[in-house]
Design a protein around this nucleic acid. Structure first.
Lengths: 203, 203, 203, 203
DNA sequence: TATGAATGAGGCTTCATTCAT
DNA sequence: CATGAATGAAGCCTCATTCAT
C-alpha cells in the first residue's frame, strides 16, 4: 500500500512539533512543560504527537541534537571568509557578542544549559553531549592551532585549554544573563573576554 | 513546659534533612527528586519533614542560602592574610583550582547551576539569586579596585566586567565538568584562566 | 478533526459525574466525600473526573446551581395556571408539602443546607448563595404583592418579611426532618405553616 | 497516691479546651478546624488535649451537649416570672429577637446547625440530637397546652406542630442570617413570626 | 500530667501515555 | 493517520493521633 500522506507532509508536521516543543521547553523548562502544552502550541492532537515521537524524552533529545547542529553550522559558515586565525577568532567573538539577546535567543540558551545539566545525570546522554561539545571544542582548537602555526599566537599555550575557557565563558555569561536579564551588558562583556583571550594568546 | 527535645536535637534533625535533601537534589535534580526520596534518605517520615520545612521549595532555598553562605565564608577567610590585591586574586584562583573535585563537590555545583536556571523562570526567586550573586561579585570587585588604587592593575579596566567574566568562567567550567567528569583538568584550566585574567589586569 | 465523541456523550458523562457527586455529597457531606468516592461511584477514573471538572469545589458549585435552578423551574411552572395570589401561595405550600420525602429528596436538601453553612464562611461563595436565595425570595414577594394589589392580602404587611419567614420555615423543617426522619409529619407541618401564613396575610 | 493536681484545676483546663474548641469550630467549622488550632488557641499542648478528650469527635460532642444545655437553662429561667401562656410565649419570642446578633452569637448558632447536619448522618449521634430537640420541643408544647387549658389559645390546634414550626423558624432564620449577615433584620423578622404564631394560636 | 516531635494514612491534583473510534 | 477521552501512578501536603521523655 502506498503511504497515505507524503513524506514531506510528515516531515513538516515533525518539524512543527519540534518547534512547538522548543518554544514550550524554553518557556517552562523540560520538566514543567507538558505534552499538552506542546500539542496546544502546535495545534495538533496528542495522538498525532505520539505518531511522530514516542515520548517526551525523545522529542527533547531530537531537539537537542538538531539545535546543537544548527548553531554549529552557522558558526562554521560565518568563519569561512576570514584569512588569519586572529581574524577568525575575533569574528567568533563578534558573532556571539552581536547575537540578538532577545527573549527568544536567551531562552534557546537556557534550554541548552538545561540540556547539559540533565544530560550530566544520564549516562545514555552524556556521550551525546561530549560528542556535541567536542565539535565546538575542535572547531576552536583548529583556529588556535592555525594561529600558532602561522606564528600569530604563542606556541607555549595549550590550545585545548584556551578553547575550553572560551566556551566556559560563553556558557557562564549566558547563565548569568538569564538572571540579570535586560541590565546585563552581554556585548561589552563578550568583547572584553575576547580581548582578554587574544591578549593571552598573543606572544 | 520546656520543649521536650533540645534545640540541638532539632537543629541536628534539620541538618540531617538538609543533607539528605542535598544528596537527593544532587542525584536527581530539584524537579525530579521527591519528598519521599528525601525522607527515605534521611530515615524520617514525611510528617517529620513538614515539621521542619514547609515545602520542597523551602528546603531547597534554605539549602542554597546555606551553601552560598558557607562557600563565601570560606572565600573571605582565605583571603584575609594576603597583602596585595594580586596575591588575593591569585589565592582566589588557587582556592577554586584546588577544590576537591569529588563527586560531592561537583554535585553541589550542579544543584547551584540548576537552581540558577529554575530561578531565572521564577520572579520570586530571581531576586534571591541576584542578591547571592552580588555578594560574590562585590567581593571580587573590591579586590580588583584595591589593586587599581595601589597601581597593581590598570585603571582603564572596568572592575565589574572582569569580575563578571571571572564568575562566568567559574560557572562555565563547572558546567562543563559535569559532563566531562574525571577527565576534566579543572585545576589546570582554572590556573590558566587565572593567568589570563591577571595578564589582562596588569598594566 | 471533529471530536471523536459526541457532545451528547460528554454531556452524559458530565451528568453521570454530577449524579455520583450528589450521591456522595449527600451520603457523606461535602468535606467528607472524596474525589475517590465520586469516581468509584461513577465507575470512572480520577483522571476522567478532572477532564470534566477542575476541582471538587467546582463540581459542588455546578451541582448547586443546577439543583437550585431545577427546583426553581418546577416551582415557577407549577404556579402558572393559578389565578389568584392566594391560590398561588396555597399551591406553593402544596408543592412543598407533597414533595416525596424519600431519602433522595431529603439528602438533596441536606446538601443545600450544608452548602449554605460552608458558603457562610467563604466570601467567594456567599455572593452565589445570596443570588440563589434572591431568586426564591423575589418569587414569593411577587406573589404576595400581587395579592396585596388585588386586595386579597392586607397591605400593612411587609411582603419581604413574610417571604423570609416562609423560606425560614422551609429550611428549618428540612433541617429537623434530617434528624427525625420517617416519623416527621412534614406534610401536615407544612400545611399548618401554610395556614398560619395565609391567616396572617389575610385582612 | 493522691492526685497531683486538684479536680478544680483539671476542670478548669477542660473548660478552657471546650471554649477554645467552640471558638475554633465556630470560626472554621468542625471539619476544617484542627486539633492544632484548638491547642494553639488554648495555649496548651496537644498531649494535654488528649489527656482531657480522647478525640476531636469527643470534644465536639461534649460541646454540643453543654451548649444545648446552657441555652435551654437560660430559656427556662427567663420564663419563670410570667403568668399567662401568652406572656410566656411572647417572652420567648422576645428573648430570641433580642439576642445580640454579634459575630460570636451567630457563630454559636452556626456550630449548632452544623452539629445538626453532621448528626443527621451518624446513627450514634442522631439519638442524642433527638433528645436535645425534645427538650426544647416539650418546653414549648407545655406552654402552648397551658394556654389551651386556660382557654387563651384555640384547642383545635396541635401544640406539637406549632412548636415544631416555631423551632423551624428559629433555625431557618439563623441559617439565612449566616449568609445575609449585617443586613438581616432578625429582630423584626422574629417579632413578625411571633405575631404570626400568636394570631394562629388565638381563637 | 505535660510536651511536642513523629507517624503515616489519606486527600487533592497532575500528566505521560494509551487506545477506541 | 488523527482525535482526545480515559487511565492511574505518582507527587505534594495535611492532620488526627501516639508516645518517648
Amino acid at each position: 500500500m502506498a503511504p497515505k500522506v507524503s513524506e514531506e507532509y510528515k516531515e513538516k508536521k515533525r518539524q512543527d512539533l519540534l518547534k512547538s516543543a522548543m518554544a514550550c521547553f524554553a518557556e517552562k523548562g523540560y520538566q514543567t512543560a507538558t505534552i499538552d502544552d506542546i500539542v496546544t502550541h502546535s495545534g495538533m492532537s496528542k495522538g498525532a504527537f505520539y505518531n511522530y515521537f514516542s515520548s517526551k524524552e525523545e522529542i527533547y533529545l531530537t531537539l537537542l541534537k538538531q539545535s546543537v547542529y544548527l548553531s554549529f553550522q552557522k558558526l562554521r559558515e560565518a568563519i569561512q571568509s576570514k584569512e588569519t586565525a586572529k581574524e577568525k577568532l575575533k569574528h567568533v567573538f563578534d558573532i556571539y557578542s552581536n547575537l540578538d539577546f532577545t527573549k527568544k535567543s536567551i531562552q534557546n540558551h537556557r534550554v541548552q544549559i538545561e540540556f547539559w545539566i540533565i544530560a550530566s545525570r544520564n549516562d545514555n546522554l552524556i556521550d551525546h553531549m561530549k560528542t556535541h561539545a567536542k565539535v565546538f571544542h575542535d572547531f576552536l582548537i583548529e583556529i588556535i592551532e592555525e594561529g600558532q602555526k602561522k606564528s600569530e599566537f604563542s606556541k607555549d599555550i595549550k590550545s585545548a585549554d584556551v578553547s575550553e575557557i572560551f566556551w566556559a565563558i560563553t556558557d557562564g555569561l549566558f547563565l548569568h544573563m538569564l538572571v540579570e536579564k535586560d541590565e546585563f551588558p552581554m556585548k561589552r562583556l563578550y568583547q572584553t573576554a575576547g580581548k582578554m583571550i587574544l591578549k593571552y594568546l598573543e606572544k
